[in-house]
Design a protein around this nucleic acid. Structure first.
Lengths: 245, 245
DNA sequence: CTATACAGATTTGTCTACAATTCTGGATAC
DNA sequence: GTATCCAGAATTGTAGACAAATCTGTATAG
């Protein structure tokens, strides 16, 4: 190549194949950062910083942030006509609405789970008992490995949703549930101290599924979330809200 | 500037100010195209074509399509590792799940509307009666201006949601409701023929709000959607599903 | 006549460039 | 000492370029 062309383009391109789907990766990684509190509630988001952190360009990061905004993990601090993005704060009011929605979404799914054939229901109940018994063990052992608790509770609820919900409801649940996890993680004590209550509520839900009673399952799930919300509210009152100032 | 640099960049750029927010515009316009059936269910989507149609670059169009995908207006026809986008088909099964979800979301909001102070409730009821009476007029006059019917029914429901729901639930409703509109628009006759049933159900909902009975409001809204779904299912049976082949 | 292979056309995914706007800090006026 | 204004830094929004992947149609071999 002649040397006089050297300065013309010379954009050394680093093989664009960042594995084919950076957007997904960006979405899940950023969500993880938010859910785990590494990006703390109320804090500023700079696209370029995240892009560097994830070692990709701004384009997929940007799209991911828009997803997160639509789902409520991120809100736009609209100054004038430009949208600054901020990690959504955790407030008691928001928690109330969020938990209420999840309770109803799960209630709807649970209702359909209760309508499944008996064979399926007993199979599910067995699985649910497995999760709940593990929770009970942690409880009696005063183990308090918070991480395990989160996962067990999540698995319990997911098992119900996944067996009863169709694709739409499932997607809806998947997009909302991690937001409740934000509250769990940051106000962990609320879950751990009152764990026995939740375990008891789970027992009732299992019984309702075995009985095949949709109303009872729905009520059980709604109560579980509603009560969780009250327990959470107490903790928020004590420790204060985060990211809302 | 030395002449040997003349060929370096020279990208004449046409003032990027497409008004500051092309993404929103792209999202709403494309959604409109889908909801109104201009982009028919099951049909292929090509980013570049849409970009040309909206006279903007692919970047905002692409993001908008991702939003639409997340909300269920568009699905990805995943071949290998690349995502071809397709306008979501309209199926009886999907309608069932969709209507069920909306019924419950509105039910939750309506429940909170029923819990408002009496003064607010009567004010809302007045507004609702306004919409419903207009529907009744169209009905008795055998007017069947479909467009007006859509708007009136939508306004009726929105009035309830907006008075009872918090920001999260409102956003959720806003993202789901237009998807029901897709079914309305394409199977319009299902609404128009049985309009009197819906009007009667609306009356019951109004009465429940006036009475301030959350359970009754919730039941009323859920039934309204559930019955609407049945009416729709009959029409789908007759005319067939669209876009699913 | 059918099946395979290959070349060109399409289309998507990601990157970087650039314009416009907003923010920040410091210098100047009072 | 405080308020105002301006230059430069930082940040966002959009455009367009390119590479990889997929699809399509045609030509060739059997």
């Amino acid at each position: 190549m002649p040397s006089h062309v050297a300065g013309t383009k010379q954009v050394v391109r680093a093989k664009t194949d960042h594995d084919g789907n950076s957007l997904r990766k960006a979405f899940y990684e950023i969500r993880e950062l938010i859910v785990h509190g590494r990006l703390s509630p109320g804090s500023w988001i700079v696209e370029a910083d995240l892009a560097r952190h994830l070692s990709m360009s701004r384009t997929p990061v940007r799209s991911a942030l828009h997803w997160l905004q639509r789902e409520g993990y991120v809100i736009e601090h609209k100054n004038a006509r430009k949208s600054r993005m901020v990690v959504a704060p955790l407030t008691k009011e928001d928690a109330g609405e969020l938990y209420s929605i999840i309770g109803h979404v799960e209630g709807l799914a649970g209702r359909r789970t209760a309508a499944l054939p008996k064979a399926n229901r007993t199979e599910i109940a067995t699985r649910l008992r497995g999760f709940n018994n593990q929770l009970r063990e942690i409880l009696t052992a005063r183990d308090s490995r918070a991480a395990g608790i989160f996962d067990l509770d999540r698995n319990f609820h997911r098992a119900i949703i996944e067996s009863g919900a169709g694709p739409r409801l499932l997607a809806l649940h998947k997009s909302i549930e991690p937001q409740a996890e934000r509250y769990w993680r940051l106000y962990a004590s609320s879950i751990i101290n009152d764990l026995h209550l939740s375990v008891a509520e789970h027992d009732e839900i299992i019984a309702a599924i075995v009985a095949g009673d949709p109303d009872r399952v729905e009520r059980g799930l709604q109560s579980n979330w509603e009560n969780g919300c009250h327990r959470l509210a107490r903790v928020i009152d004590i420790f204060g809200e985060r990211g809302s100032w």
